[in-house]
Design a protein around this nucleic acid. Structure first.
Lengths: 110, 110
DNA sequence: ACATTAGTTAGATAATTAGCTAAATATAAA
DNA sequence: TTTATATTTAGCTAATTATCTAACTAATGT
């Protein structure tokens, strides 16, 4: 889970996930969306892969990357959970700070 | 939002948020939970503060840090949203990959 | 066989980050 | 007013990260 958060710390990598969300894409295809060199992108892919957020499938001379949504899901929900925050019911029940500063989005029935 | 993700990239800082979740705490009180020096903790508090995740209130000679849950909420939900992921209904609807690899934790009704 | 294409690995560098000790600041207590 | 406490700021170092170019590997096309 630490690896996931480390991976998410880079805006470019988050963007990669967004792109992959629509459909699996090759390394080169993804790289076209960024103003950095291919080796740099390759390094980012490695980080995402090691975090388990994407997986690679070699097809001829291209490599297709695919988003592993479940890993992202588990990390984010897991973290939210560790904070006692039930994302499903989002109203971020906050014991000590109920009146002070919390839940600006009236999402449930408050 | 980038600052938030950068802040969340450190396990210690995530732990600080978890501790603050229960109640606001002073810098020293928080620091006791970690095996690093106070100046190091102070630096972490600064990062969290700059991300908007905590705020500080000076009280005599101590500083009380308080979690700003809404900021975390907005960042996480915002990011999930940018991925087209509706956390509320968590089943991570994934256009191209529906059958391939998704949602390993039986969270809803599957 | 040779050239082209897709992508990586190697190796270097610059920037950022996490940690330390020592010193400074500010409040409170004696 | 001197001392003790809580926390930060300054200044340093070591580790990590993001980036680059050049060189390599593997697959395909001619």
């Amino acid at each position: 889970m630490n690896r996931v958060f480390k991976a998410l710390a880079d805006p470019g990598r988050r963007r990669v996930l967004q792109l992959l969300r629509k459909r699996p894409m090759s390394a080169g295809e993804l790289a076209e969306h960024f103003p950095v060199s291919k080796p740099t992108m390759s390094a980012h892919f490695t980080v995402l892969q090691e975090a388990g957020l994407i997986d690679a499938e070699k097809n001829g001379r291209t490599i297709i990357y695919r988003l592993r949504m479940s890993v992202l899901e588990d990390a984010l929900l897991g973290f939210a959970d560790s904070l006692g925050w039930d994302m499903k019911n989002t109203e971020a029940d906050n014991p000590a700070q109920l009146s002070t500063e919390t839940s600006r989005t009236p999402r449930k029935g408050n």
